[in-house]
């Protein structure tokens, strides 16, 4: 096959854009899972963020306000999940699925009058002459603010989880909630806050899809990005920097298959469009087949609900 028509610099620059939504959603979910909660509603929170961000940006004319609205909307729907699983002790798998089903319907309802509208443009940050540097300029200094925000969030989460007291409390709650409770940590409060953070990140990731990546609103536009983000957390063995590496890898695959579609190779479009999902599955298989690494990496209390006796 001839890859000659694909410019590597453009490829890297555009894979960063393609990866940002799943990167944001995955880093949020990583914090949630580190706290011992499995929220399968990422897809639902992303799409609610996508529509809320889109609607707010179109109404106010400001993409930044749209993104803030997406953060709030993502956190708001994740609050339903927090209420169900932390206060009412519902099954986490079922509640996450419910959140996704609800989010897909709810977003379609909200987005009805926004189909076919072009959102206000999200400008690239102005780095002056730096952006004109060959190769580096396009890759490092040629993006909009959210690409940098997503990198900053990854670094922040990494630092916070490893080097701050709050991060260690959160990890203790996720590893063994009974011990954490015995030590006097507020297990439920920590988990609810983690869920809200995950919702905010997923919402922002969704808004990046509808405001920058596509940019348009269509029903069901996340098309499994939330599920890929969930897989990414497993792929990354619950480590923030590996989430970044994994997200950029998937971004690369997505951009590559889109380029191949556009280049008109003989493979039908549908088979190329399958590739991100199939590669996600293959990666999951490789990562989960290593028993020792998996059991060491996953938070000890992941998916178990906590109820303090007495």
């Amino acid at each position: 096959m001839d890859f000659g028509s694909i410019n590597p610099v453009v490829l890297i620059a555009s894979l960063m854009v393609a990866a940002t939504p799943i990167l944001l959603a995955a880093i949020g979910e990583l914090v949630v899972e580190k706290a011992g909660v499995l929220n399968l509603g990422v897809e639902g929170m992303m799409i609610v963020g996508a529509v809320a961000g889109f609607a707010a940006a179109v109404t106010t004319g400001s993409p930044i306000l749209g993104m803030l609205a997406a953060i709030i909307a993502g956190a708001a729907v994740s609050l339903i999940f927090a209420l169900l699983t932390q206060v009412l002790m519902a099954n986490q798998v079922a509640s996450g699925l419910a959140l996704t089903l609800f989010g897909l319907g709810f977003s379609a309802l909200l987005g009805q009058s926004y189909v076919g509208i072009v959102p206000p443009r999200t400008e690239k940050l102005d780095f002056g002459p730096l952006s004109d540097l060959p190769v580096v300029g396009r890759i490092l200094f040629g993006h909009d603010i959210l690409v940098y925000v997503s990198l900053f969030v990854v670094a922040g989460v990494w630092y916070w989880l490893n080097y701050t007291r709050g991060g260690r409390v959160l990890r203790a709650v996720g590893e063994n909630h009974d011990s954490a409770h015995a030590l006097g940590y507020k297990v439920k409060r920590v988990r609810i806050l983690a869920i809200l953070f995950g919702g905010a990140c997923a919402g922002l990731g969704g808004a990046y899809l509808s405001l920058v990546r596509v940019p348009q609103w269509t029903e069901g536009m996340t098309a499994g990005a939330g599920w890929i983000a969930l897989a990414l957390v497993v792929f990354a063995s619950w480590k923030p920097w590996r989430v970044l590496a994994g997200a950029y890898l998937f971004g690369g695959i997505m951009v590559l298959q889109l380029n191949l579609q556009a280049a008109g190779y003989r493979i039908p479009v549908e088979y190329l469009a399958m590739s991100p999902y199939i590669i996600t599955i293959l990666v999951l298989v490789v990562m989960s087949s290593n028993r020792t690494r998996r059991t060491l990496a996953a938070p000890g209390s992941l998916g178990r609900s906590f109820h303090a006796a007495g």
Partner: peptide, 26 residues
């Protein structure tokens, strides 16, 4: 009524069901 409204309706049904399960277990 928008088609999506019924999807929301079904999603809410599952929410309420999961929420009320607390009464059978606690």
């Amino acid at each position: 009524l928008p088609a999506a409204a019924i999807q929301v309706f079904q999603g809410m049904l599952l929410f309420f069901l999961l929420a009320l399960d607390v009464l059978s277990n606690y």
